[in-house]
Design a protein around this nucleic acid. Sequence first.
DNA 1: TCAGTTCGCGCG
DNA 2: AAAGCGCGCGAACTGA
Length: 578
Amino acid sequence: MDIKRILHPADLVPYMEKLTAAKVIAVDTETTGLDPHTCQLRLIQLAAEDLPVLVIDCFSFLPEGRELINAILSTSGIKIFQNAKFDLQFLMALDIFPPTLFDTMLASQLLRGSGGPVQSNLKALAQHYLNEDLDKEEQTSNWQGELTESQILYAARDAEILLRLRKVMIPQILENHLTQIAGIEFRCVKAMAHLEYRGIYLDRQKWQELYEKTEAERKTALDELYTYVERPLMQMSLWGEDVAINQNFESQQFVLNVLHEHGIPVAATAKQDLYPYRRHPLVKTLLSYRKAAKSISAFLQPFTPLIHPVTGRLHPRYGQISAWSGRMSCWNPNIQQIPRDSEFRACFAAPPGRKLILADYSQIELRVAAQISGDTRMISAYQQGEDLHLLTASLVAHKPIAEITPQERQAAKAVNFGLIFGMGAPGLQQYAQQNYGVEMSLEQATEFRERFFKAYTGIHRWHQSIKAHLPKEGRTLAGRKFVYYEKAGLPGYYNTPVQGTAADIVKKALGLLIERLAGTDTYIVGIVHDEILLESPAEEAHTMAALLKSTMEEAANAILPKVPTKVDVLVSESWAEK
DNA sequence: TCAGTTCGCGCG
DNA sequence: AAAGCGCGCGAACTGA
C-alpha cells in the first residue's frame, strides 16, 4: 500500500485534478474523540484508484486547506464511508456535506438477510467479505500528539479497505435485489448525521418544574401506600432522609404480597393483571405511584444531565437500521418514547425566534397493509378518502356509517390495528381496553374478528397465503429483505413487512428532505417512526411545512402506488400537539 | 460482587 | 392450537 502524508495544502495540490475527477473515493477520518461539538478532526484519509492513500493531518492542514477538502468531497463522485453518520458530523462542523455516499456498514446490515455477518464493524466486514484479519490497534490510540508510523499505516488501511469492500459488496447487493433499499439508506444517512448533530431543544426550566410536580405526586402516592402496610421499618439514608426498608413498592414480590394481604388475588402486578381491581383504592394508588415513579426514573431524572454543555440541546443517537424490521431506534435519550402527555411534550419547544414543524403519516401501517394485501375494499376506501375506522365499525356492526357512535368507532380502531396483524380474540379484547379504553366481551371480540375477515377478504387471503407457505424470508415493498427465525409467530410474518415498509417510506422521505433543506436554516430535530419534526426560523416555517408535507407524500406515493397518503402537518411552538 | 435476565412500561 | 409487532430503559432479581 502506497501512502502519502499530507501536512499542508500545497502537498495536496498535485493530486487535486485526479481527486476531483475520481468516480469513487473512500473516506475515513480519525478524531480526537467521539463528540463532534467538542472534539477535533485529526486525520482525513482518502483512497482512490491509481493514487497513493492520502493521509491528511488536519492539525496542520486546516483551516487553510478546507476549500480543497470541500472541492474533493462535494463532487458527484461516490464517497465510501464505514458508518458515515459518524464522519459526516465532523465534516458538517467544517460545513462540508458529500452528496453521494456508499456506506459499507449499512450495506452489510442490509446483506444480513443474505448471508452477511451479524456484526458490522470494520473488522467483521474485512473478515467476512475479504477474508482479512484486522488488528485494530488504533482503537486506543491517542490522536492528539505526534503520530507514529503505525497509526498512519492503520489509518490509511482503514480507508483503502473500503474501496475493496464496496467492490465485493456491490455484486451481492445486485444479486439479492437490494439496490433500491440501499439507495434509500445511503441517501438517508445524511439526514441521520444532520439529526444527531443538530439535536433537539429541551426547555430545562419547564422540565425541572414538571420534575418537581411529579415528585410531589410520587410522594403523595407513596405516603398513601404506606397506610396499607404494617409498621414501616424506617431507616435514615446516607442523605439524612427517612426511607422505608423492606417495604419497597418497586419490588414486584413485595407488591404482590401486599395485594394478596388485601384480598386482591392477582398472579402478577402488571397493569393488565390489576385491571379487574382498578376500582380498589390500593390498586388506584399503586398505579398512580407507578406512573409518577416511571416518569421520574425514565424521563425527568436522566434527561437534564444529557443536555449538551456546548449546544445546550439534547443529542439523541439514532440507529438507522437497528430494529429487525428496518425501523430506526433511538437512545441517549430515547426520544421515541416520551409520554404523549402534553406536559412532557411542551418541554420540547422551539427556541426563541423559531418554530417547530410536526408532521406525521396518518394510518401509515394500515395503508401499507392495504397495498401489500391488495384488499380492494380497503384500497377503494382510501382512494375515496373514507374514514377507515368508520367503515370497519359499520362492517362489523352491520350498521350504516351514519349510525356509528364514537364508541363504536373507537372499538373499530382496535379492531383494525389488532386484527391486521393476527391478534386473537382475547388479545383484541385486552388491547381494546388498554389502548382505546373500550370494553369488549370475549364473545364480541370473537364476532368482530369473524366479521372483520369476512369484510376484508384481501386481508384474509393475505393471511391465508402466509399461513400456507410460512416463507423463509420476506421483503418490504422497497426490497428490504429479512430471514424469519425458526418458529416465528404468525403475527411476526404479517407485521414485519408492514412495519418495514413504513420505515422504507420515512427513510425515503428523509433522503429527499435533507437534500431539499440544503442552504436553509431549517433542521430535522426528531424522527418518531412515522413522524418527522423540523425546527425552522419562524418566518420560513410555513414554507418549510409545505415542503415537508409534499416531500413525505412524494416518498409514500413512490412506494405505495395504489394507496393515497395523508400527511398531517402543523406549525407549532412545541411538540405538544393541540 | 457483578454481569445477564426478567418484568414492567413508555412510544409508534 | 393459539399467538399483534418493534424498540430502550430502570429496577429488581438471578446465578455463579
